[in-house]
């Protein structure tokens, strides 16, 4: 690793201590088998049940709009700042732009993350940008850029979905004109079982293909969608892994249904924000 002169550097090489631990013997396949037999997930949820959500706006006093979301253990904070002129741009653009940055805190995942944005974070920033672009009235912000920053403090699965839902709320608080409420949900697929809002272990389990003879179905992967509520439109879709068309179709139905479950929560949060604003 090159020496970073702008930070305090530790030793040249260090490895996570988990590498030297005795293996627990719980492979993804075994974990899935347990899950399938129990018919329930390790935290007692049904397969297609979303975790409890805690959503609060106005978490950052210095930001124009901000939101803090907790989904189970996953904790994400999103800030939105005042629109500013697009930097380093000479020509005039009729449409506004969004700048999204998605970052995992170094201590947020099982393995320590580096300070610089890695490829996964860059990809997530991109997905987030695409999702939010279709919810914001960009034509009302000509030549302006809105900065949106998401920081994951604790990643226990579905962090990107949490960030997008929270960013929607933060944008509303910042007074950025929007078409609709945006919500996002992740589903993990393994052997035709759909795990809505997977935690980090389930995410891992859904991203490997099981090789043993028992499992003939090789559908596995993650689906993430973002949905505009009243328009009933999908504004972003992301998939990885191998998913057949039929499974994809049923997966989308499940996702779409779950998005509707979250909407009242978001609405409640926004109503509270407005009533508080009127009161004071």
């Amino acid at each position: 690793m090159p020496v970073d002169h702008k930070r305090i550097n530790g030793p040249e090489e260090s490895v996570p201590y988990e590498l030297f631990a005795r293996l627990s013997g719980l492979t993804s396949e075994k974990a899935f088998e347990q899950l399938y037999k129990a018919g329930k997930r390790s935290d007692g949820r049904e397969f297609e049940e979303h975790r409890k959500i805690f959503l609060k706006n106005g978490a950052v006093s210095q930001a124009k709009g901000s939101a803090y979301i907790e989904m189970g253990q996953t904790k994400v904070i999103v800030s939105v700042f005042d629109p500013r002129e697009i930097p380093n741009r000479s020509d005039y653009s009729l449409k506004g732009e969004l700048y999204c940055e998605f970052k995992f805190a170094p201590f947020s995942c099982a393995k320590r993350r580096l300070h610089q944005q890695d490829n996964e974070e860059k990809q997530y920033s991109c997905i987030m940008k695409k999702a939010l672009e279709s919810a914001v009235c960009l034509h009302e912000l000509p030549n302006f850029q809105v900065d949106i920053y998401a920081l994951v403090m604790h990643n226990d699965g579905s962090a990107l979905s949490a960030a997008i839902t929270a960013a929607g709320v933060a944008l509303v608080e910042a007074g950025v004109p929007m078409y609709d409420i945006i919500t996002s949900v992740t589903v993990g697929i393994q052997q035709g079982v759909k795990l809505v809002d997977p935690d980090s272990l389930e995410e891992q389990m859904c991203q490997v293909q099981f090789l043993s003879e028992k499992y003939q179905d090789n559908n596995h992967g993650l689906l993430i969608i973002s949905k505009l509520h009243t328009q009933e439109q999908l504004c972003q879709f992301y998939q990885n892994g191998y998913v057949s068309l039929e499974v994809l179709k049923s997966g989308l139905e499940v996702l779409s249904k779950t998005c509707e479950v979250i909407v009242p929560l978001v609405q409640k949060c926004l109503i509270k924000h407005i009533t508080n604003g009127i009161k004071s």
Partner: peptide, 27 residues
Amino acid sequence: EISRPKADAATKGFLVPNVELSPVCSS
């Protein structure tokens, strides 16, 4: 994390503090 002590301080571990002023906190 586990690492190897420095040659000139063979009996010492490390504590590496870093402060980050992330763009989340202020414009």
